[in-house]
Structure formats: structure tokens, C-alpha cells
């Protein structure tokens, strides 16, 4: 070892320590703060004080008045958080997959144009996208008016379609109605993450050699069978990975839920915001909800990882 390498090593070590410290400060410390605050005590009519009580978690899982009565309100919010995020993530990946597959079969130039388009679309914020969909779904100027003006509403009335849509919560006795509804919520969430799904799936799918697909065809597999038996198994890990990533991303969606979801079907992200910034100003309870949401996301990621390990471990 030369003398000149010693200062270099100490500089590198210093940079490493700074790096670890930065990660701790930026990622771990906020989480630890939230975790600590979740055990704090809310002073009625005032702010909160540090402490260690499980009141907030009890309120989340069984309600404030337990054991006199049980309230599952926040578990319901959690359920809707998971439901919306999971369905939208699966829908986005399921619909992006065939698109990306066809896209990668196209010319290089066409692929580049599509990728640039999707990268550009990522610059739109959630607020901007939701505003567009809000107009599209609006009862007075959006799709419901198109249905009415084109006579589609009358046709649905005559054929019993409107009654069916009413059962699904997508119509009034007079016309179709998309707001508020789970349909509009999930549709918008799906749209929100669709470009991400495309960009996540593009690298692994584009790497599949043309010859692998052709080999399957020469062995009697139709194009659909090739996708089912060769392409999808080859990209199983990226597919599940994309669903998990988008799921976690969507767990925190706020604007879409606030605009399109029925208040009785709101999610924890709305509830957390109301607790922390809303009229109640109950940071300990908001933190407890955030911790539960985080642990739920972690649990889903662990389940997904186990699923992949089980599938890829075999032949």
C-alpha cells in the first residue's frame, strides 16, 4: 500500500459515511418520527404530546368506544386503499402487456415514438390528469351528455341496460352517471399509472429474442399460445414486479380518490390527510394510519416476492 492511497481511502470512507447519514436522515428518520408520533397523545382542543399509548391503533382497528362498540371504519378505508390500488395496478399491467408486446414487434422508429410519447405523458401531474377525467366523467358536460345526446341513453332504457347500470351504481333513473363511482375511480387510477406500466414492461419484453417466438411457432404454437406459454412465463417476474410497484404507488393516491370515490368508499390516504391537516389536527392518529398503510404495503410486497420465488424456483 502506498502512502498516497491512504488519504484516498479515508476520503472514500468519509463519502460513504455521509451517504449512509443522508439515507438515514432522508428516509429512515421521517419514518421513525411518524412511527413515534403514532404512539403520542392527542390533547383535545390542542395539539398533541409525546407519549406511549396504543389508543390510536385501537381506534384504527376496533374504534374509540371499544369494548362498548366496535367500529371498522378505518379498516374499511384500508380495504378500499388496497382494493383500488390492487385492481388498478393489475388492470394497468394487464392492458399494458399486450400493447407493449405489439409495440416491440413494430419497427424501431415506431417504438421510439411511442416511448417518447409515454415519457412525455409522465410530466402530467395527478391533478392535471384527474381534472381531464373529471370533465370527461362530469354529468353535465362529459360522457353522460354524450350518451344522452346520441340517443344511447334511450336505447339503454329500452333494452334494460340502464337498470343494470343502476345496479352497478353507474346510472340514475334518467341517465348514466360515472361520478362518484368505483368504476371512475379505478379507471382513472389505471390511466394514471398506465404509462409507468408500459415503461416498466418495455425493457424485459423488448429483450425477448424473435427467434424464441419463432421457435415456438415452428413447434405448432399459435401466436396466442406463444404469448401464453413462452412470453408471459419469460417475463413473469417483471409483470409481478410492475404490479407491486404500481400498487404501492397507488396506495397513496389522493386527488383521484377525493374527486371520484364516494365518501363512504374513501381510502386511508384521504383519512390520513384529514387527520394531519384537516379540522381534527390529530397527528398521532394520522401517523398510526400511515404506519398501518406502510405495513400493509410491506406485507403485500413480501407476499409478492414469495409468490415469485415459488414460481421461479421450479422448472
Amino acid at each position: 500500500m502506498t502512502a498516497s492511497t491512504l488519504p484516498q481511502r479515508s476520503v472514500l470512507r468519509g463519502i460513504g459515511v455521509l451517504h449512509v447519514a443522508a439515507v438515514l436522515v432522508l428516509a429512515v428518520v421521517p419514518f421513525l418520527l411518524v412511527f413515534a408520533i403514532s404512539f403520542g397523545h392527542k390533547v383535545e382542543g390542542a395539539a398533541w404530546v409525546w407519549g406511549f399509548e396504543l389508543t390510536n391503533y385501537r381506534r384504527f382497528f376496533v374504534g374509540t368506544d371499544y369494548p362498548d362498540s366496535v367500529s371498522l371504519l378505518y379498516l374499511k378505508y384500508l380495504w378500499y386503499s388496497v382494493w383500488y390500488a390492487l385492481v388498478a395496478a393489475i388492470l394497468a399491467v394487464a392492458t399494458a402487456f399486450p400493447f407493449v408486446w405489439l409495440m416491440t414487434r413494430g419497427s424501431r422508429r415506431a417504438q421510439t415514438v411511442w416511448l417518447v410519447f409515454f415519457l412525455c405523458s409522465l410530466t402530467f401531474s395527478e391533478v392535471f390528469i384527474v381534472m381531464g377525467w373529471d370533465i370527461l366523467m362530469s354529468n353535465r358536460s362529459g360522457l353522460p351528455m354524450v350518451f344522452q345526446e346520441t340517443g344511447l341513453t334511450d336505447w339503454l332504457k329500452e333494452n334494460g341496460g340502464l337498470d343494470l347500470l343502476r345496479e352497478w351504481g353507474l346510472a340514475t333513473p334518467r341517465n348514466v352517471r360515472f361520478k362518484p363511482s368505483e368504476f371512475a375511480t379505478i379507471l382513472t387510477l389505471t390511466y394514471l399509472v398506465w404509462p409507468y406500466a408500459v415503461i416498466l414492461l418495455y425493457p424485459p419484453i423488448s429483450k425477448i429474442e424473435r427467434e424464441v417466438v419463432e421457435a415456438a411457432r415452428t413447434m405448432g404454437a399459435s401466436p396466442f399460445t406463444v404469448v401464453r406459454t413462452v412470453v408471459m412465463p419469460m417475463v413473469r417476474t417483471p409483470l409481478v414486479g410492475a404490479v407491486l410497484l404500481l400498487f404501492v404507488f397507488l396506495l397513496g393516491a389522493y386527488v383521484t380518490i377525493a374527486v371520484f370515490a364516494d365518501p363512504s368508499k374513501h381510502t386511508l390516504s384521504i383519512s390520513v390527510y384529514e387527520a394531519v391537516r384537516g379540522s381534527t389536527l390529530n397527528a398521532p392518529f394520522g401517523s398510526a394510519q400511515a404506519v398501518v398503510l406502510l405495513l400493509t404495503a410491506a406485507a403485500v410486497l413480501v407476499i409478492g416476492q414469495r409468490f415469485l420465488s415459488a414460481k421461479t424456483g421450479g422448472h
Binding site: 429474442e209 427467434e211 424464441v212 419463432e214 421457435a215 415456438a216 415452428t218 413462452v230 412465463p233 419469460m234 413473469r236
Partner: peptide, 11 residues
């Protein structure tokens, strides 16, 4: 058919 890259299925 045997391909130049052999095109075996890795999965």
C-alpha cells in the same frame, strides 16, 4: 427448426 441462437426457452 434449429435457429442460429438455438432459441431455447430459458424458463
Amino acid at each position: 427448426m434449429v435457429f442460429q441462437s438455438f432459441a431455447l426457452f430459458p424458463h
